[in-house]
């Protein structure tokens, strides 16, 4: 009877532990079946539980190693990429909005559990918001100057979607491949997984969503100011996250890699600004993001353009 009491007590304690750390017990359907084993693992490894942070991190990874990884053609495999809660997503967005040095986005917010929910829906939102605000800019321009002929430009949705998704997936792929190659030459380099890289890029694009909405204000210098601010925030987050990885490499490669990352980010922002927010009818505008300095200024002849030489 004493042994039974002990076992029951142990299980209760484990249940309390589970209640305290909802993150540790994943909530998908298939895991509920195997939660018994998880409980045993938690009791065995986490008796001295009480602190959060690194310890919890270890435990989570331990639990994830425990269960068999589903095959990639099953639905469960993809379910593991969407295993996030609302509070986690909000926390990650907040982390991407407020970067500061030494604060690694992957280590502090992803914690070995990158999700695809954030990157996917942030990209979708950004694409649609870009298209909608791009159209609204034309409507506002028409309000000021009736000679402009406005018709809804639906193709902007397609262009924005293709651009954003290509950027948010192909650039992380290239970056990850490059880092893997560098890791082959130098032993001590750490590495992020491909999903973590995608996640970092996806969340770093979030800051552009409010920025794009703010670009509706038809004041040129204010638009450029908001754009520069958003770009600085987003690129800083990327650099702070990538720095611990590339630090081990040679100085030249590290500097080149980080500057290319920042440059691509700036090109994306600049391209969006110049293509979607050109207050002119399309007949007269050749959308060329490279041709920056001679910005057609027919509509706003008196406005100041301090940052066109960006």
């Amino acid at each position: 009877a004493a042994a039974d009491d002990l076992a029951f007590h142990e299980f209760e304690e484990a249940a309390n532990l589970l209640a305290e750390t909802p993150d540790a017990a994943t909530t998908s359907q298939s895991d509920k079946l195997t939660s018994q084993e998880h409980v045993a693992v938690v009791v065995g490894s986490g008796i001295g539980y009480g602190a959060e942070g690194e310890e919890e991190d270890d435990k989570t990874s331990l639990l994830q190693d425990e269960k068999p990884q589903p095959r990639f053609w099953t639905f469960d495999y993809y379910q593991s990429f969407f295993d996030v809660d609302t509070s986690q997503v909000l926390d990650r967005i907040k982390g991407s909005l407020l970067p500061h040095p030494g604060h690694n986005f992957v280590r502090h917010h992803l914690r070995n559990r990158p999700d695809l929910y954030g990157p996917f829906w942030i990209c979708a939102t950004l694409a649609f918001v870009l298209a909608v605000t791009g159209n609204l800019t034309l409507v506002l321009a028409q309000r000021r100057d009736p000679s402009i002929h406005y018709s809804p430009q639906f193709h902007k949705v397609t262009i924005a979607g293709i651009t954003i998704y290509c950027y948010a997936w192909l650039v992380p792929l290239a970056l990850w491949g490059f880092l893997r190659w560098r890791q082959g030459t130098r032993e001590r380099m750490g590495l992020y997984t491909f999903l973590e890289t995608v996640c970092v890029y996806g969340y770093s694009l979030f800051v552009f969503i409010p920025t794009v909405v703010l670009w509706l204000i038809p004041v040129q210098w204010l638009q450029w100011l908001f754009g520069a601010l958003a770009l600085a925030l987003s690129a800083a987050g990327l650099v702070f996250t990538l720095w611990p990885v590339v630090r081990e490499d040679t100085r030249l490669v590290a500097a080149a890699l980080l500057s290319i990352v920042v440059l691509l980010h700036a090109l994306l922002a600049l391209g969006c600004k110049l293509y979607f927010f050109q207050p002119l009818p399309l007949d007269h505008v050749v959308p060329a993001p490279q041709a920056i300095p001679p910005s057609p200024n027919v509509l706003l002849p008196s406005s100041v353009q301090p940052m066109t030489t960006f």
Binding site: T27, D85, T86, S87, A124, V132, P152
Partner: peptide, 20 residues
């Protein structure tokens, strides 16, 4: 704890349709 995550795409979907 995931309701908001599931409802947000619905919001975005109807938003785009209403914009059209």
């Amino acid at each position: 704890n995931r309701k908001a995550l599931a409802v947000y795409p619905v919001f975005l979907f109807y938003f785009v349709v209403s914009w059209m």
